[in-house]
Design a protein around this nucleic acid. Structure first.
Lengths: 260, 260
DNA sequence: ATATTATTGGGTCATTATGACACAATATTA
DNA sequence: TAATATTGTGTCATAATGACCCAATAATAT
């Protein structure tokens, strides 16, 4: 069988001939969602039911790397048109060194015939996505046991350098916070100020003063205060807010906290 | 001749067998220097003496992408251990679409036998480097007519999407300014406050108030004021400054203008 | 020799932003 | 009905910022 016509089984929508793929190049998505005032990341469970991995895939010779990341995102979440941002390339050959590789292959319990393809050295492009938690229906691929959300601060054991990739995604988001607002892509239409503050606190990894946070967010002029209050929670009912899309996009473009 | 043993002639230190390279993956360096209070970028002149291109190269199967970028930088500048930062992946297949590709091939006047290698679709990783202008001895590679500095605001015609790559590098630097100081890697040991301000103005693309800029830089506590004055210029002689390395690195690590 | 001129070092000052609190209002639970 | 946690809003001292101003100075022009 010629190498180029060999099939790589990567799930329902992902049976590719090797000849159609960019060799040694992959994308890995760090998909963030927000639930219970906690930042979550979507992971795939390996067939050994112990290790987990990031949703990833290969780049078709005919598609852009962005499109490859969008395809992977769609296959795992059913979502299209979400915030998806390339953040770092992981290009160290040691990331797929033999020891890691064979243990990862074991975790994944991949069929023998995919060996040669998977065992090559991969450079992977990290993307992070911000999605609305409620809208996601997690779908495992054919080499995974399950697909589920995990708290970013209570991650399970991960294959390869996927733990580093997630940490790097968080750092990149932290930097992006310096010049753009966030939340539009993570929160439902209506949300409380506490919801928004929790996102910032998770990404910045520190507590913020509630009063000062509210003042600053309102000063940015991107929030619409609803008269409807959030019912059901314990204690005083907070206001609900929504983003003013036009103003949000303007601030995204012109910068949030531009200094100097 | 087997494909894997074919030689790609890319300059004195760059004769690689195709089989030793990551297929379809390259690095391109945007090398910034500072001279005459202007930000400059190092470019290679194509053999047609009209188009220019970024110094770039291929990634060896055995080396990290970072190492590939360092190798390219060393070959063109003779410099090692400089600030080199990956900033974006350019992964759209249309960037190497036929029309662009063949015109670029013409510009470069590449020998026929390299066609098949060069004509494949490339994903390129953009790196930007900050180097000390005076220390650089620009060295063209074997497929270039010359290697020279150009003002970032007066760029010549460039092949492929290299103009976009430079613009993107500047934007990325602008964002990095938000959380780290700059200048240590661009300026000689001793420099004037005006030198430093010019760098910031170029990267931020706007004028800054001289007095306020001085106040802010001094407040950061990373500058050492020399008693020696800069002689030779017209008008009043300014003080010379140098960076306090330890403090500079601390600010680089902890953040310059961290907000919230 | 002296005036001119561009540039530099060092300020002022009003305004805004920030960080650290305070306190009353309120919705659930005890 | 009281206790409690949470929220909306306000205060206030301090820090940072933006927009100026002015005297000192070194080369150049006269």
């Amino acid at each position: 069988m010629r190498m180029e016509s060999k099939l790589i089984n990567m799930g329902k929508q992902q049976n590719f001939k090797v000849g159609e793929l960019m060799p040694g190049l992959s994308v890995d998505n760090v998909i963030f969602g927000f639930h219970d005032n906690q930042l979550k990341v979507l992971l795939l469970e390996c067939m050994n039911h112990r290790d987990w991995m990031l949703p990833g895939g290969f780049v078709l010779k005919s598609e852009s790397t962005d499109a490859a990341a969008e395809r992977v995102l769609y296959d795992r979440t059913g979502l299209n048109n979400v915030y998806l941002q390339q953040f770092h390339v992981f290009g160290d050959p040691s990331r797929s060194r033999d020891s890691l590789m064979s243990s990862a292959m074991k975790s994944m319990e991949l069929p023998f015939e995919t060996d040669n393809w998977f065992k090559q050295r991969f450079v992977t492009i990290g993307y992070y996505a911000l999605v609305e938690f409620e809208k996601v229906v997690p779908v495992p691929d054919s080499i995974s046991a399950s697909c589920a959300w995990h708290d970013t601060d209570k991650l399970p054991r991960l294959i390869f350098d996927h733990k580093d990739i997630i940490a790097n995604a968080l750092t990149s988001m932290r930097h992006h916070l310096n010049y753009q607002p966030i939340g539009y892509n993570l929160l439902p239409k209506e949300f409380t100020m506490k919801n928004l503050q929790s996102i910032y606190e998770t990404i910045l990894n520190r507590k913020l003063d509630r009063s000062n946070f509210t003042r600053k967010m309102l000063a940015a002029g991107i929030l619409d205060k609803k008269e409807k209050l959030f019912a059901g929670g314990a204690h005083k009912a907070p206001y609900l807010y929504s983003f003013k899309k036009k103003e949000y996009l303007k601030v995204l473009k012109d910068g949030f906290n531009n200094e100097f």
